[in-house]
Design a protein around this nucleic acid. Structure first.
Lengths: 339, 339
DNA sequence: TTGAAAGCGTTACCAG
DNA sequence: CTGGTAACGCTTTCAA
């Protein structure tokens, strides 16, 4: 690989001059000299060594991305948005999977710091609690690395977060069912320790309240975000008088669908279902699923854009706008008593 | 961030000594001195600046990963295997999405070279032909970057590839149907310019031949790896006397399933289907899909291991073993005339 | 057993 | 307008 020195030698100029020209800082250098340098650079197929650049400028134009597991649709969409934005801005991104382990989070923060990243997009491991999150927060501080917490976070001062509006999503889903005439709306939540699940539940409650429907814990079931959770929830639900259900993700909604079928209950004739996530699958199922779509990829882009801006301008311009989800009405919901 | 110099000052030793100790090259240094250095390093929370290390050692312990689109299940599984292996070995990986564009491939190779990666795991954009592939090959050469072509490649001398055995997969799928008594086995392939599709077709033909079943182009349909391709293929197929079909991926298999349903044909009673990929979905469908599972993640791990080895030892030990797929028999296939 | 000094490829300051 | 030189943080001879 050709270096700046090679160009300097070839052109009989100093490395300073070459560097200046190559970085467009050559205000006082005649076009003629510039052309010579540029030509030599092209001839030698010069490409700057970013390691050296980063060493001296203290800026690598590199971000780290820490997610629990890139195989998960949510995270791969996030990663896509992030990488796209990086590319647009001439940045580059390291991929790290924590496998949902706090210790890995810590380890990766250290590694990325060593690699000289300017910032980290961080989606914390699901085994984190407030204390563990704080530990990581302090590590970021110690290394002086700016970071943005993606979707998952604990509320500390000065934490910058990129958020999906789960409350609104919960509200939209529930409101839709209410508008269709349902009043006995069951809820299959995610794990109770997850903030997104809690927020969605809040949205659910808000919609109920707003419409004068009493909240009934008997038709709220804690799920696990797996198909199987939907399946097993059905056994409990069939003993109640529910007419609709809001599942906190599409996989569980699908489990519900199958479970109901085995009980001779049909969607949407007998029971209406709303899911959450809008995974690829949902559109093409036997009964296309009404669900809540989240702008995950966009959130990735926005967060990245914000982070880069933060790094380059050192000012926290303002807050990242929360990303609003959108209800996608398909065939799994119907008017009550439409049968 | 503390540097080696800080430690040297604090301990009244030279940077040389500190470096030696920290890198376990301190054969001639008394334990006492070592302890002092180690303690100081801990106290100062020292962590080496890998940019500087890379600059001087010419080795960054960093790989690049170029894939068409990380949102695709196949690639995110690949990425997971790769990143896992990197982590195990103390390496790190840059993520790049080419969006299936040749020009992006080129661009990323240059960028990664600039970032000082020691090697690249490369899955080429689908718009590549032999000529374009060669262009990229030469770029790798010019930068002196070792690379491994993942799954997709063109046969040039000295190209190291990590391969899935699509021929075997095609053979297994077809053989399974033959064993069930089927002789009129249709085929819904991928795009004809893709090597994996061609290989699977070869496997299909091999199985037919081996069993004395004539090859009939009339029941071979070129697909597009999309659900919709499966759907539309049904319209052509129902005019033939096929009793089984081998779809070259699960998404199309699912499309077939739905299409057949609208024609009053049931799986596996009327028609047997074998898919390919074993995506998450396949196990939980109405009729769980018999399909071919590919060890994608493992291939990622193996390729990474090999590449790192290649970089560190400079010798091409031997060829990466081809990864054999596995038939997963579920409910979408049945004996002919079992109805 | 330890240290001085050169060098990796850049940028950036200050002279000329 | 251009160049010399220091510096970034580290490793690596070579000498002492």
């Amino acid at each position: 690989m050709a270096t700046i020195k090679d160009i300097a030698i070839k052109t009989n100029l100093s490395t300073t001059t070459v560097s200046l020209v190559l970085n467009n800082r050559a205000d006082n250098i005649p076009q003629k000299t510039k052309d010579i340098v540029l030509k030599a650079a092209r001839d030698l197929n010069y490409s700057p060594n970013q390691l050296a650049v980063a060493l001296v400028t203290k800026r690598s134009k590199t971000l780290g991305l820490i997610v629990p597991d890139i195989r998960n649709d949510f995270f791969s969409n996030l990663a896509k948005g992030i990488e796209d934005e990086c590319r647009d801005k001439g940045w580059t991104v390291f991929l790290c999977n924590s496998n949902d382990m706090h210790d890995r989070d810590l380890e990766y923060i250290k590694i990325l710091a060593g690699k000289g990243v300017d910032g980290i997009l961080y989606c914390m491991s699901s085994d984190s609690d407030a204390k563990k999150f704080k530990e990581k927060y302090e590590l970021f501080q110690r290394f002086g690395i700016k970071f943005i917490a993606l979707d998952r976070y604990f509320d500390f001062p000065n934490i910058i977060t990129a958020r999906l509006d789960h409350l609104k999503g919960g509200y939209l889903a529930t409101k839709h069912l209410i508008d269709l005439g349902h009043r006995r709306i069951a809820c299959l939540t995610g794990p109770n320790n997850l903030i997104d699940s809690n927020e969605r539940l809040k949205g659910y409650k808000m919609a109920l309240k707003e419409n004068g429907i009493p909240y009934d814990p008997n038709i709220i079931i804690e799920g696990n975000y797996q198909v199987e959770g939907g399946l097993s929830a059905v056994d409990k639900l069939v003993k109640t008088d529910f007419t609709a259900i809001f599942a906190f993700n599409d996989m569980m909604a699908y489990g519900l669908f199958k479970g109901l079928q085995t009980h001779g209950l049909f969607v949407p004739k007998d029971i209406s279902i709303v899911g959450y996530d809008d995974i690829y699958l949902s559109e093409i199922l036997e009964v296309p699923l009404t669900t809540v779509h989240q702008p995950v990829e966009l959130m990735g882009k926005t967060a990245t854009n914000y982070l880069i801006n933060l790094i380059e301008n050192e000012v926290e311009n303002n807050v990242i706008p929360t990303h609003a989800p959108k209800l996608v009405v398909r065939k799994s919901t119907a008017k009550l008593n439409s049968s």
